[in-house]
């Protein structure tokens, strides 16, 4: 960890919940990005944790914008900076709702237009800011305040949607592995053009587990293969970090699901279904890595 700078861009006074992983990883993201960066934040928990005007816990310019607009605001900002010869990093930091649901059109447009920016989606698998309603990114079976019996639809596959835009760099990450994320942010920011990172970010009150288990929850997601760490450079896929082991020998998904209150009462058939989809997904990734797809 010696290479990680000591500078802090988030002061220790955010209003995030105890064990909030999306704000923990933001610290590393900003360290990787450095001071010549602007964070564009749509409505989400991150718009709240900064604190209340006239104070801010952020030591970097943060441009808060309307829910659907982050990628489009970044388009204009990046075009303006580049026009006047500035290299300033333009980084969107958006929740899953602001990305896979209301913000997907703006994101797709910005990616297609080759916007020089980094879009980071931290995925806590619900609309946490407004009280844990379902999002398109909520997984099958998860209880939210709008799916009290558990979500009946599967999680939207954001990464394959983004991949279809053929961007130079995209990656997944998980808050339990900040060093892996740190390197990916550095890599993304070194590339001109649109880059994208999708971070699984467990949320204690939303997922209903004790806040001290927040790192463990991220690790379980990766070890069960529910979440896969990878990067795609100019289309070429490579699995990174802990996912290498998980790909060969994943833990049963039950070990992840049964630790979270949101999956309480999930039936065996749903667990089997989830297990099978994880198997299929891991096999698909393995095939692609081996170059046999």
């Amino acid at each position: 960890m010696a290479e990680i700078p000591k500078e802090e861009y988030i002061l220790r006074c955010t209003s995030a919940c105890a064990g909030c992983s999306s704000s923990l990883v933001l610290r590393y993201i900003l360290k990787a990005a450095g001071p010549d960066s602007v964070l564009v934040v749509p409505a989400c928990c991150t718009s709240v944790i900064q604190g209340i005007y006239p104070n801010t816990a952020m030591n970097i310019p943060v441009y808060n914008v309307a829910f659907a607009s982050a990628a489009a605001v970044a388009s204009g900002m990046s075009a303006a900076f580049r026009s006047v010869g500035k290299k300033t990093n333009v980084i969107c930091y958006a929740g899953d709702g602001g990305t896979v649901d209301i913000g997907i059109q703006a994101l797709s447009g910005a990616l297609e237009r080759g916007t020089d920016f980094l879009y980071i989606c931290y995925d806590n698998e619900a609309y946490s800011n407004t009280g844990m309603q379902r999002s398109g990114s909520t997984p099958l079976g998860a209880k939210t305040t709008t799916t009290p019996e558990g979500k009946r639809d599967a999680k939207k596959d954001l990464d394959r949607i983004v991949q279809a835009h053929n961007l130079p760099y995209m990656a997944t990450a998980c808050s339990a592995y900040p060093l892996d994320l740190y390197k990916k942010v550095q890599k993304a920011l070194a590339i001109r053009g649109p880059t994208f990172i999708h971070i699984l970010a467990p949320c204690p009150p939303g997922w209903r587990y004790p806040s001290e288990a927040t790192i463990e929850m991220g690790k379980l997601a990766v070890k069960t293969g529910m979440w896969v760490l990878y990067e795609r450079e100019y289309g070429k896929l490579s699995v990174t970090g802990a996912s290498k082991g998980a790909l060969a020998k994943p833990l049963p998904v039950g070990e992840y699901l049964t630790r979270q209150g949101r999956f309480k009462g999930i039936d065996a058939a749903t667990i089997d279904y989830v297990q099978q989809s994880v198997r299929d997904n891991l096999a698909r990734i393995a095939r692609e890595v081996e170059g046999v797809c």
Partner: peptide, 8 residues
């Protein structure tokens, strides 16, 4: 650096 459009 500063916050823009921070919770008010």
């Amino acid at each position: 650096p500063g916050g823009y459009g921070t919770l008010t």
